[in-house]
Measured scan of single mutants.
Amino acid sequence: MSIQHFRVALIPFFAAFCLPVFAHPETLVKVKDAEDQLGARVGYIELDLNSGKILESFRPEERFPMMSTFKVLLCGAVLSRVDAGQEQLGRRIHYSQNDLVEYSPVTEKHLTDGMTVRELCSAAITMSDNTAANLLLTTIGGPKELTAFLHNMGDHVTRLDRWEPELNEAIPNDERDTTMPAAMATTLRKLLTGELLTLASRQQLIDWMEADKVAGPLLRSALPAGWFIADKSGAGERGSRGIIAALGPDGKPSRIVVIYTTGSQATMDERNRQIAEIGASLIKHW
């Protein structure tokens, strides 16, 4: 067993022997301040990774656009098919120029040779490549099948209805392509620590998230040296922004954090800054 596999296998073990965790309302004060600064709703939840206990939450059962955070769930569904012998990570998928959609920095470079399922998941999570996500959605049967996968996990809230990039439209009061912070946090925890996926697939999923290259201005910008984070960000229309993450000190994750916002007129930089400040408060009061 590799060191990384050992780390993920012992996530519940280490967490069980940690000192009790206590909620700190100071972080919620910052979440509410972010709402004021952005002029928009902000949803927040913080779960203990081992027990699933909610440590703090704000608007945990209000719907927010998922945006690209759905790509972690998508690759979880792909990995479940791999575990069941219905898919192979090494299978190569070929596609054409007509398949390319807006923001496809990886797939646009491989029109000639195609990409493997493993490479597509890596591109979808680490670079948020939209064509990679659409190609992977095709392998599982489309958005409705991802929703069905989530329902089978016990998540009857999260739903995907459309493809990239239309799913980022974020129309107010439109339930399409949305989740709730509580539902997303619980589902992410199941994917990373539950028995739904094999140990190898859980490790692969967290490795992809740990290698995320496009979430630097968010929670990662607030992390002290030595902290662990595996995350996936999302951005959408109407001032929408979000991030889902597993993080913790001492090089291992111990909490799940989900943050979503929508309806702001603020710039992307300002949305990023507010999420980073929430992260800084979380870490300060850990």
Score class of each variant (00 low, 15 high):
residue 151 H to M: 09
residue 212 D to V: 08
residue 136 L to H: 00
residue 130 N to L: 01
residue 113 D to P: 08
residue 84 A to N: 15
residue 263 G to E: 04
residue 250 D to E: 04
residue 36 D to L: 04
residue 219 L to F: 02
residue 45 I to Y: 13
residue 263 G to A: 03
residue 115 M to E: 00
residue 95 Y to W: 07
residue 47 L to K: 02
residue 250 D to M: 05
residue 195 E to K: 13
residue 194 G to A: 09
residue 95 Y to P: 02
residue 172 P to W: 09
residue 93 I to A: 15
residue 160 L to K: 09
residue 39 G to H: 12
residue 226 G to H: 03
residue 243 I to H: 07
residue 87 E to T: 14
residue 37 Q to T: 12
residue 94 H to T: 14
residue 79 L to S: 06
residue 139 T to E: 10
residue 46 E to I: 10
residue 286 W to C: 10
residue 214 V to P: 01
residue 286 W to D: 03
residue 71 K to E: 05
residue 212 D to W: 15
residue 131 T to P: 11
residue 63 R to S: 02
residue 185 A to N: 03
residue 127 M to A: 06
residue 235 A to G: 11
residue 151 H to P: 03
residue 209 M to F: 06
residue 270 E to A: 14
residue 111 L to I: 05
residue 42 V to M: 00
residue 278 I to R: 15
residue 147 T to A: 14
residue 258 V to I: 12
residue 164 E to K: 15
residue 206 I to W: 14
residue 60 P to V: 05
residue 138 T to M: 15
residue 193 T to R: 04
residue 98 N to F: 05
residue 162 R to L: 09
residue 67 M to A: 11
residue 191 L to G: 06
residue 262 T to G: 09
residue 63 R to E: 06
residue 218 L to V: 06
residue 130 N to V: 05
residue 237 E to I: 13
residue 142 G to S: 06
residue 214 V to K: 02
residue 250 D to C: 03
residue 182 A to E: 06
residue 263 G to C: 00
residue 181 P to S: 08
residue 157 V to S: 04
residue 136 L to I: 13
residue 30 K to H: 15
residue 207 D to W: 03
residue 169 E to V: 07
residue 259 I to G: 06
residue 103 Y to F: 01
residue 119 E to N: 13
residue 284 K to F: 01
residue 190 K to G: 15
residue 266 A to I: 15
residue 220 R to W: 06
residue 175 E to F: 00
residue 52 G to L: 06
residue 211 A to E: 06
residue 192 L to H: 12
residue 228 F to D: 02
residue 200 A to L: 11
residue 84 A to L: 13
residue 278 I to F: 15
residue 136 L to A: 04
residue 240 S to W: 05
residue 84 A to I: 11
residue 217 P to H: 13
residue 98 N to V: 02
residue 277 E to D: 15
residue 196 L to V: 09
residue 73 L to G: 08
residue 178 T to I: 14
residue 226 G to W: 09
residue 132 A to N: 03
residue 165 P to I: 02
residue 122 S to E: 14
residue 101 V to M: 00
residue 58 F to Q: 12
residue 89 L to Y: 02
residue 108 E to G: 06
residue 158 T to C: 12
residue 103 Y to W: 09
residue 203 Q to F: 14
residue 25 P to G: 07
residue 29 V to Y: 08
residue 240 S to A: 09
residue 36 D to Q: 00
residue 275 I to K: 00
residue 139 T to D: 11
residue 200 A to Q: 14
residue 239 G to H: 09
residue 136 L to Y: 12
residue 145 E to M: 11
residue 73 L to S: 12
residue 208 W to V: 06
residue 276 A to D: 10
residue 178 T to C: 10
residue 108 E to S: 11
residue 131 T to F: 10
residue 131 T to C: 08
residue 160 L to I: 06
residue 264 S to G: 05
residue 171 I to C: 00
residue 106 V to E: 03
residue 54 I to A: 07
residue 84 A to E: 15
residue 77 A to T: 09
residue 179 T to W: 00
residue 169 E to M: 08
residue 169 E to W: 03
residue 84 A to G: 07
residue 147 T to M: 15
residue 126 T to C: 07
residue 85 G to Q: 03
residue 187 T to F: 04
residue 252 K to C: 02
residue 230 A to V: 01
residue 216 G to M: 00
residue 151 H to Q: 11
residue 68 S to C: 04
residue 233 S to L: 03
residue 111 L to D: 01
residue 39 G to N: 10
residue 191 L to T: 13
residue 135 L to H: 03
residue 171 I to A: 02
residue 62 E to S: 10
residue 126 T to Q: 00
residue 264 S to D: 07
residue 125 I to F: 13
residue 261 T to C: 11
residue 222 A to P: 13
residue 70 F to H: 09
residue 224 P to I: 00
residue 235 A to I: 10
residue 93 I to Y: 06
residue 186 T to E: 03
residue 195 E to W: 10
residue 31 V to K: 02
residue 192 L to N: 03
residue 228 F to C: 14
residue 189 R to M: 09
residue 213 K to Q: 03
residue 170 A to C: 01
residue 74 L to H: 12
residue 46 E to K: 05
residue 27 T to A: 11
residue 168 N to H: 11
residue 208 W to F: 12
residue 137 L to I: 12
residue 197 L to A: 11
residue 31 V to Q: 02
residue 113 D to C: 13
residue 205 L to P: 08
residue 55 L to D: 01
residue 257 V to N: 01
residue 238 R to I: 00
residue 264 S to E: 10
residue 189 R to T: 11
residue 179 T to R: 12
residue 187 T to N: 15
residue 111 L to E: 00
residue 104 S to H: 01
residue 253 P to G: 11
residue 252 K to G: 00
residue 141 G to E: 10
